[in-house]
Computed example of a mutant assay.
Amino acid sequence: MPEQGLHHRQGDQLGIGDLRCDPDLPSPDRLIDDWFDIADETLTAQREFAKALLAFGSPMIDAVSRAAMRTIEATQEATREATREAAEATTQATREAMEAATQGSREAPPEAPRTTRASSARRDG
């Protein structure tokens, strides 16, 4: 009997007690069930919390999505408008360049024919 008391005291010093002699301790099966029950309750609470966050944030997500769509549409419209304006400006510049070229060819005096030595010799000769 003194050995059992000594063993009990050594276990107490380690903070674990005498597992073989304490009938009030739960069985290992009971401990496993308790731990998994706690884990299940924790996961359930986390799931509910995550769903609540999503429900709370959902209107914000919708608002951000709508704002993004408006930004995309405005950017597309601005791009179409800039492209149209650039095409019109290019067309106008091309017309003006063609008109200037046509006008310039009408106003320029005709060039004198170039003479070669042979034609000069015939004329002089």
Rank of each mutant, 00 (worst) to 15 (best):
P59R: 04
M60S: 04
G17R: 12
I72Y: 07
A121G: 05
E111M: 13
R106F: 10
S65P: 00
Q92S: 10
Q92Y: 10
Q4H: 01
T79L: 06
T75A: 08
I61W: 05
E81G: 05
T79P: 01
W35A: 13
Q13A: 11
I16Q: 11
A97P: 04
T90W: 00
C21I: 01
D37K: 03
S105P: 00
T94K: 15
T102Q: 15
P109T: 10
L31V: 12
T102G: 01
K51S: 02
R20F: 13
R20E: 01
I38W: 04
H8I: 06
S119H: 04
P110R: 12
A87V: 08
E99S: 08
I32N: 05
R20A: 15
M69G: 03
F36S: 12
A97L: 08
R95M: 15
G57Q: 03
G17C: 05
R70M: 02
E77A: 13
R47V: 09
T75Y: 03
R84Q: 08
F36W: 10
E88W: 05
T44Q: 12
E81T: 08
Q76R: 13
L25Y: 07
Q13W: 03
A112Q: 09
Q4P: 01
A68T: 14
A45H: 06
P113R: 09
G11D: 04
P59M: 01
G15V: 01
E99H: 03
A82W: 07
T75W: 09
D29K: 08
P23F: 09
Q10P: 04
L43F: 10
R95S: 14
A97C: 15
A112E: 13
L19M: 12
D37F: 06
G17H: 13
P59K: 02
G125Q: 07
S58T: 06
R20D: 13
P109A: 15
T75V: 04
Q10G: 09
S119W: 06
E77K: 11
P23K: 03
G17L: 09
D33P: 02
G104R: 15
D37Y: 00
T102N: 05
A121N: 13
D62N: 02
D29H: 07
E111T: 13
L6I: 13
T90V: 03
R114F: 12
G17M: 11
E88S: 10
P26R: 09
P110V: 11
E99G: 04
T44D: 02
G57H: 00
L43R: 07
S27R: 02
T44C: 00
A118Y: 10
Q92P: 00
D33G: 04
R117Y: 13
A89F: 06
A93M: 05
C21W: 00
A108H: 14
Q13L: 15
R30L: 12
A82E: 10
E111D: 14
D18H: 05
T83R: 14
D18M: 03
S27C: 01
A121R: 08
P59G: 01
A112F: 09
E48N: 02
